[in-house]
Amino acid sequence: MDVLSDVITVLRTGRPRSARVAWHAPFAQHFAPVPGAAGFQIVLQGPCWLVLPGSDPVPLAAGDVVFRPHGRGHTLADSPSTRPTAPACHPDDPQPLQSYATSTAGGLTGTDSPAAVTLCGAYELDPARTHPLLEDLPELVHLPAHLGRHPALRATVDLLAAELERPRLGTDAIVPALLDTLLLHILRAWLDEQRSSVTTAGWAAALNDPVTLAALQAIHRDAARPWTVATLAAEAGLSRAPFARRFATRLGQPPLTYLTWWRMTTAARLLRESDAPLRAIAAQVGYASEFAFATAFKRQHGTAPGRYRRGA
């Protein structure tokens, strides 16, 4: 897998949820914080406002995509002055995020045209396997609608909106796949937006840098290979010392430190999701000895692989 696909595989868990909601003014729906989740709002028809604690309200227009990667609460409203009247969403019953639902909310109903129509949704994330790319994301990723920008993201939104508005045979299989596709396109779009940034550190800088990206792709393509700084530098097309400095500057850690972290993160996923014997998992993440693997795993996760699997 490539780096971004691996990131999604590692951090995603459970089943994503989404709903198409027609909002009738006046409306102000508070979405409560949900630890271990990331949420999105996509405006199909607008305008409306995103109200965040401690920040200025954000005006949204049709076509805007908003991603909240850290599970913080927010309010969606027809006006910043409208006070929330609906009960706050509870993490165990995140209304109106019933799976693949279409609903009507707000003040007026019936034949009145909605003031806004949105797609809202949430992804369950595993806090124990959070990838540093997610930690680097800001509190709010706002991708305003611009003609011709991010066409693949817009196409995915259109497909998802159509499935939620008119569920048919196969919708229960199509919608989760579209939601995962949507998450990838949101992250791609955010990375593209960062390309012109002068920032030299962080995952956005690393994935937009051909040198560090080549090394990361090599690690994620074959984590079991006996990588050294020199062999990773060769993959990246630099000599050893300049490569090591560049990698550490971008990601805040040496290449082999990230390699070990990724191996142990992959091992944890395999322990939770498969019944493969420990020696097979050890070999899959680059350890010829089960003992060496167990030592490295305990150093990273604070417990032995067998006990970790039983706890999971």
Rank of each mutant, 00 (worst) to 15 (best):
T9W: 14
T111D: 12
P59M: 11
L50T: 03
V117E: 01
T104R: 13
L50E: 05
S79C: 11
D78C: 13
R15C: 03
S81C: 08
S5D: 15
I42M: 07
T102L: 09
S18P: 00
D56H: 07
G39I: 02
L4M: 15
G14P: 02
D126I: 03
A28T: 04
P57G: 05
H90R: 12
D92C: 03
H74N: 09
L97K: 01
C89H: 02
A88S: 13
C89Y: 01
R68L: 15
S55T: 12
H70Q: 13
L11N: 02
A37E: 15
V43Q: 03
P114C: 10
P47V: 10
G71Q: 11
P57F: 12
D78W: 10
P35V: 14
S81I: 06
H90Y: 08
P138A: 08
S81G: 10
A37N: 13
P80G: 08
P69H: 12
P84N: 13
G71L: 11
H131G: 02
V66F: 07
P84C: 08
V21W: 02
P35G: 08
P47W: 09
V43N: 02
P114K: 07
I42N: 04
T111W: 13
P91H: 12
R17P: 03
P94T: 04
A38K: 08
D136S: 14
Q45W: 07
P80T: 11
D92N: 07
A116C: 15
R129M: 10
R15M: 09
H142G: 13
G14F: 10
F67D: 01
D126E: 14
A115C: 08
T82A: 09
V117A: 00
P26D: 02
H131C: 05
A28C: 05
T111R: 14
L143S: 12
P26F: 04
G63R: 11
A25Y: 00
G14M: 07
A32I: 09
C89D: 06
Q29H: 05
P35D: 15
T109S: 00
